[in-house]
Amino acid sequence: MVSSPKNFLFLFLGLAGLTLATSGIALINLGGMNFPIAILIACLQASIIIYYYMHIQSAEILVKIFAVGTLLWLSILILLTFNDYFSRYWTTNPSLWP
């Protein structure tokens, strides 16, 4: 468990380094990989904040259930909507059918 000021300073340096990295990578043309890399780095930063700054690892089980529940509802919101959007033209254009 991280609890000393020095460890939090290292966490900040890590987060700031990831920010500079993601900004730098955005300026390089990686074709289709730019999008997933930016999202992956953002998810990594978010995990660091939730895990260490918001103390989810030492929180009690009820708090953890609410945190996981939030992710669950968010994934329903996003996945079901994009399930619709990605498959919307399949019925009118059979060549796009898998």
């Binding site: 993601t22 900004s23 955005a26 300026l27 390089i28 043309n29 990686l30 074709g31 730019n34 999008f35 930016a38 999202i39 780095i41 953002a42």
Partner: peptide, 9 residues
Amino acid sequence: PSLYLLGRF
């Protein structure tokens, strides 16, 4: 990333 990064390339 949504507003500043995605889509520069």
